[in-house]
Design a binder for these strands. Structure first.
Lengths: 110, 110
DNA sequence: TTAAATAGGGATAAACTTATCACCCGGTGA
DNA sequence: TCACCGGGTGATAAGTTTATCCCTATTTAA
């Protein structure tokens, strides 16, 4: 029984890796095309977002829809298990909002 | 407004870094002394646990009690804001339990 | 007096993640 | 024709995190 198989770690690893949480929130808000996501998360490198989108699709959190039209059109949607992450992320946000002060104070001069 | 100041990221960063989530759960279960924590999370290096305990204390998630007795006795307890992480971790565990199969299938041969 | 347990720290190495850069292709509008 | 948009990739550099190793100090038990 590896530590990596721990259900808690699985969830945390997904949410914590690079831009995943942000991506999931943006897609939930209705920004579903790669180019639009790249614009709305403009500080993230394009290459990294592409990689993460692929990763999130592979593990069943996003569903990729490819429209056979030209110019090529691609959209990503949250699967059911992806949608179930939304309330969790909101809880994380609530917690962070409530406690960010203590946190920022004590990390400024570490 | 830095990405690192995002409330969601603050919470995720805390939970994701090395052994924090596990430590928080163990302390919540009543394992409160450093030496006992090192035994119960035996695959984690002692040095790392010490560091994380100090870090979690600094950001106000743990409270450190030093008993002026000999042999030296130290205990860590969850603060109120630390306790508020417990239900969130439980949600993460539920999610992970529910979806670990899809996850493990698609990461085994990446 | 020696060993073990308690709590902790400094310095460096190893590992992992993320970012960067330069590309690919197909199509469209000027 | 040329530049640009949309979607995407491979290879490597850079950066961060974790782990490793080896110390400190004090007290009790053998």
């Amino acid at each position: 029984m590896d530590y990596a198989d721990c259900p808690v770690r699985i969830a945390i690893d997904i949410l914590s890796s690079s831009w995943n949480a942000w991506l999931i929130l943006e897609i939930h808000k209705g920004i579903v095309r790669p180019c639009d996501l790249q614009r709305s998360i403009s500080i993230a490198p394009k290459r990294v977002l592409t990689k993460q989108l692929g990763e999130l699709e592979k593990i069943g959190i996003l569903e990729k829809k490819i429209y056979p039209v030209l110019p090529l059109k691609v959209e990503y949607y949250l699967t059911d298990q992806g949608k179930e992450l939304i309330p969790i992320i909101e809880k994380l946000r609530e917690w962070g909002d409530k406690h960010k002060n203590v946190f920022l104070e004590n990390t400024a001069f570490k």
